[in-house]
């Protein structure tokens, strides 16, 4: 039975991926800080789908430990990185330490661990790497550019890694979910038509992995929206409030 490693396994999106892949018969490993507290999630997924769920301690910011983490047997068939942290743009922009924490959580940590897996999967000659990035990385905006810039870096990293690994048997999927109704966005008033449920994200990622898609927007309308936002000339864009 193939195994799916989900990094940042506590988030709503990560758990939605766990349900989607477990529903398709994959064993799951949830990797997160204090993973022992994910016991109820483990029991839930095992009961619903009859698969095995493992729990591993993982701290995305502890990059010194990433080589060892990725070296542990068995090397998973699929790795999904759902690590991320939105931060508070207004407060963080005046606080270097807080800004850096957002940058590291959304770029440095995720890129470093996936890089460590990429090398091992390349050596094996099979595998799929999924990075959950964000539409926020498609263009920096005043309201969330610290988070967005880190996601932009992560998107570029995934793109480059896909380019490198093409032909090696290892595939890289970039996911740009758009708005998702998760704990992270619970306090926000999101437009319903643009907002996916976590389960939609899980289903979209499962499909992307099965079909070998490269870059997916969970709701197609986001591809259009971000296409428009990217095409606005900077002289105009800089005056806009979006």
């Amino acid at each position: 039975m193939s195994q799916v490693m989900i990094l940042g396994g506590r988030s709503d999106m990560a758990l939605a991926c766990a349900h989607a892949f477990a529903g398709a018969g994959h064993d799951i490993v949830l990797a997160a800080r204090r993973s022992e507290t994910l016991g109820p999630e483990k029991a839930d997924i095992e009961l619903r789908y009859g698969v095995t769920v493992g729990l591993r301690d993982f701290d995305a910011l502890d990059v010194d430990g990433h080589e060892d983490f990725a070296a542990a047997d068995p090397l998973p068939d699929i790795v999904i990185c759902a690590v991320g942290r939105m931060g508070e743009q207004d407060a963080d922009q005046d606080d270097v330490a807080a800004s850096v924490a957002v940058m590291r959580s959304n770029y440095e940590g995720p890129a470093a661990i996936l890089g460590a897996y990429a090398t091992r999967m390349e050596a094996r000659g099979t595998g799929t790497i999924v990075g959950i990035s964000s539409v926020a990385g498609d263009r920096g905006r005043a309201t969330n550019y610290i988070y967005g810039s880190a996601k932009a870096g992560f998107t570029a990293f995934l793109s480059g890694m896909r380019n490198r690994l093409t032909g090696t048997g290892v595939h890289v999927v970039t996911v740009k979910p758009g708005f998702v109704a998760t704990q992270m966005t619970e306090h926000m008033d999101l437009p319903e038509r643009l907002t996916a449920q976590p389960a939609e994200v899980g289903a979209a990622i499962l499909k992307a992995v099965d079909k070998g898609q490269n870059v997916i927007y969970v709701r197609g309308v986001w591809r259009l929206i971000m296409g428009i936002i990217r095409s606005i000339p900077e002289a105009i864009f800089k005056k806009m409030s979006i």
Partner: peptide, 28 residues
């Protein structure tokens, strides 16, 4: 709050959180 917590395959007793959907119980 929708996690299934335990199932006793001998007795058929399911322990679950209150938000579990009945259809998911049937599916499982």
């Amino acid at each position: 709050m929708n996690r299934m917590l335990d199932f006793d395959a001998d007795t058929g007793v399911l322990t679950a959180e209150a938000g579990v959907i009945l259809g998911d119980v049937i599916a499982a």
